[in-house]
Simulated assay, not measured.
Amino acid sequence: MNKLFKAKGVKKPNYTLTAVLMVIGIFVILGPLYMAIVIAIKSPNEMTNVLSLPSHIQWSNFTKAWNMTDYPQMFLNTLFITVVNIIFTIITNSMAAYAITRQRRKNKFFNLLYYYFISAMFIPFNVIMLPLVKQINTFHMDNVIGITFLYIVFGLPMNTFLYAGFIKQIPTALEEAAIMDGATPFQVFFKVIFPLMKPMHATVAILSFMWTWNDFLMPLVLLSNPSQQTLQLSQYVFQGQFSTNYNLAFASYMLVLAPVLIMYIFFQKYIISGVVSGAIK
């Protein structure tokens, strides 16, 4: 048997190299997280060695960071933008992708529309940032509602690309059977196609959540009212003219990171299954 494996060129796995790579990966991922936690629970006098554990845990850093950033209000703003964006992104983007995918071979307009959306993926936000700010101010959309609408629109190119690849795998016979039973186009989509796209809905929801929750640049240039800022934008309060309070800043970073970690702990089953199923499709 060993000779047979050698003849076919089958090599044994290198467990030593695998173990070394795993250790390196653990340090690369957990190292920055360890530093962030340690700095967040230290006092400013103990910052000479950022890797050492504190002599006394400063839980007051989190209380001060909570108050300085007005965490409850900023959290509600960010949560509203994220949740509304995910709901309307899944509904509207999947509808657009379905119409484009099914019609692009029959109609040149939909084929052109598909490539128009895909081409938008290659345009950096920095290129359109200044004209967008001017336009948003003109239409008085420099608020939470306006930026939520923009997240839905800007996510359309990438989500169209993802949904289109998934919809191609769904047999058209299902739609034809529903139409023969008297279903309208909307009924075909919402009762037949939409439920079949659950794996891709999960993938799009994950990507939309991570993008919206962690985005800093768009709220920075678009939100003009301080009471409507997001959690990421509120971190600016720790940046002084001549110094930065790293202990409070990192405590605030941990507060911002906590909802993401909690969501992953409770929904990791659906996150992993959605990504894997979407990749297989």
Rank of each mutant, 00 (worst) to 15 (best):
V237E: 02
P219M: 04
W211T: 11
N247S: 10
V256K: 01
V260P: 05
T212S: 03
M218Y: 02
I206D: 00
L233F: 04
D215G: 05
V204L: 05
A202V: 09
D215T: 09
Y253S: 14
M263P: 01
A258K: 10
A202Q: 11
P259E: 04
W211Y: 11
L223R: 01
L220K: 13
A205C: 08
Q229Y: 07
S208P: 01
W211D: 09
Q228W: 02
I271W: 04
Q241I: 11
I271Y: 10
L231C: 03
A251F: 05
L222I: 10
A205D: 02
I265L: 14
L255Q: 10
F238V: 01
P226N: 07
P226S: 12
L233I: 13
N214W: 03
A249M: 15
N247H: 08
Y246C: 06
Y246D: 00
G240N: 08
S252L: 07
S227V: 08
F209K: 02
L220A: 12
Y264F: 15
Q241A: 14
V260G: 08
V204Q: 00
W211Q: 07
L233E: 05
A202F: 05
N247W: 00
M210K: 06
F267R: 09
F266G: 03
S208N: 07
F250D: 00
Q241K: 14
W211S: 13
I206S: 06
I206M: 01
I262G: 13
F250N: 02
L217V: 10
M218R: 11
Y253H: 03
G240W: 14
Q228M: 09
Q232E: 09
Y246K: 02
V221L: 11
I206K: 01
Q232Y: 03
N214Y: 04
M218D: 05
F267N: 13
Y246H: 08
W211G: 10
M210Q: 12
V260W: 11
L222R: 06
F242L: 12
L248A: 00
Q228E: 13
I262Y: 13
L248S: 00
L231E: 01
S234H: 01
P259Q: 09
